[in-house]
């Protein structure tokens, strides 16, 4: 029986690439799409409607998926409403409603999906949670002076994923965090993600330094580790 991947946020170019590459890797793919989104998914891909801003929507999606499959092996969350950088610095009047909306979407959206799909992951064998983010989420790597929505909406997800990791790693879960290339050409968006999400890493309990599964890391599209 093929493994099942649930992709929350499959409608953008990165999501489309994830769908394509997971199919190529032999996975059964369930794609979460926004309301009204017609992403033109390949044949054989099941879709469910999934609103990042609503826990009820995430629950309904998980219920719909449960009617199709008994379990999922991988959950991928790929939400980003800040694809276009905001050019405003702190000297210009910030759009606080927009800042709240970005946090709700980019950090809380993925957590709603994780909460809703965790029972299905629990039944699966893969037990892997993967998140797509971008280098803007990294405090240590942030060199810019603008795009507050893109930065401060994504950084907290890194914190939450670390806390999920701390709680769930002892229960057998593994995690992947992937920094997409934000200015990638459409055909390059999400390249390497599936290879990264599906490949197992060293899991030696005695060697913390070389045991990548026992610490949470952020990697970019080249596989390079990005500091938090």
């Amino acid at each position: 029986m093929s493994k099942v991947v649930m992709i929350a946020g499959a409608g953008d170019p990165v999501g489309a690439r994830l769908v394509k590459d997971f199919l190529k890797a032999g996975y059964k793919v369930i794609a979460g799409r926004l309301k009204g989104q017609q992403a033109g998914f390949p044949e054989g891909v099941q879709t469910v409607e999934l609103d990042p801003l609503s826990q009820d929507s995430a629950k309904a999606a998980a219920k719909a998926v449960r009617e199709q499959v008994e379990a999922i092996d991988l959950l991928v969350v790929n939400y980003d409403c800040c694809v276009e950088p905001d050019p405003k610095t702190i000297l210009e009047q910030p759009d606080f409603q927009g800042l709240k909306a970005a946090y709700d979407y980019n950090s809380l959206g993925p957590l709603r999906a994780v909460q809703a799909f965790l029972p299905l992951l629990e039944k699966g064998e893969g037990k892997r949670i993967c998140a797509v983010t971008s280098v803007e989420s990294s405090n240590n790597a942030a060199r810019g002076i603008c795009d507050y929505p893109g930065h401060i909406s994504k950084a907290p997800l890194n914190m939450a994923m670390n806390q999920l990791f701390n709680g769930l790693r002892p229960k057998g879960y593994t995690f992947r965090m992937y920094c997409k290339e934000t200015d990638a050409a459409p055909e390059q968006a999400g390249a390497f993600a599936v290879e990264y999400f599906t490949r197992n890493r060293s899991n030696e309990p005695e060697s913390y330094k070389h045991s990548d599964e026992n610490r949470l890391v952020l990697r970019d599209h080249m596989g390079i580790e990005i500091p938090w």
Binding site: L111, I152, M159, N166, G167
Partner: peptide, 23 residues
């Protein structure tokens, strides 16, 4: 080991301060 709204908000604060600092 549990998701904390407080921790997440302080991560966001540190990020906002990073951008302010850079400028």
């Amino acid at each position: 080991t549990e998701i904390s709204s407080y921790c997440m908000s302080k991560t966001a604060l540190n990020m906002a301060l990073r951008l302010m600092f850079n400028q």
